[in-house]
Write a protein that binds this DNA or RNA. Sequence first.
DNA 1: GAGCCGATATTCT
DNA 2: GAATATCGGCTCC
Length: 192
Amino acid sequence: MRAVLGGSAPEVAPRLLGARITASIAGEDVSAVITEVEAYTEDDPASHSRSGPNRRNASMFSDPGTLYVYRAYGIHWCANVVTGPGGEGSAILIRAGEILAGREAAIRRRGRGDHLADGPGKLAQALGITGDHDGLDLLDPRSPIRLHPGPSLAGTATVRVGITRAVDRRWRWVATQPVTSQDSEAERHDDD
DNA sequence: GAGCCGATATTCT
DNA sequence: GAATATCGGCTCC
């Protein structure tokens, strides 16, 4: 896994579709399957690392497998997986997932029973991830937040959202295979 | 269902 | 002072 994450972000991102992220925080275990990701590199006008290391993005320049957490719009937390050789400043934003375990805790944290992790801020909130966890090693068994390889899901590459620069790079990947074992929350759209 | 808008902290100009 | 890797609530189809 560490070797996989050592690749460039746009290379690694689609391979994270289907991977599992687990968080044991405040005595509650919540896990989710990653269904949507975005790649950011240092050589990327839309990336936090574009202007070099800062106090906020320091962990983005750490080793692959490091968790980078930042606050978006002053309100939400967003979780990223650092990729590339250490010091490169590239990472993959986990944009969405589907809750596998710890659904009750996720619902309590979200304050609602639907849309538990269908956005970066929501996923972080459902898992209990905050700035406190910035810099953790996702591959260390002692870490409260961990990333596990899973069956790679088929995905579609599209353009990233919420950015104004380099909008033409198709560095967002959305899983096209359904992974829902639970029902309700995933509105599936059977066929058309 | 799609589209506008306010909330709020950190960073850069 | 402006912009931002968002969300939820509100309108208006």
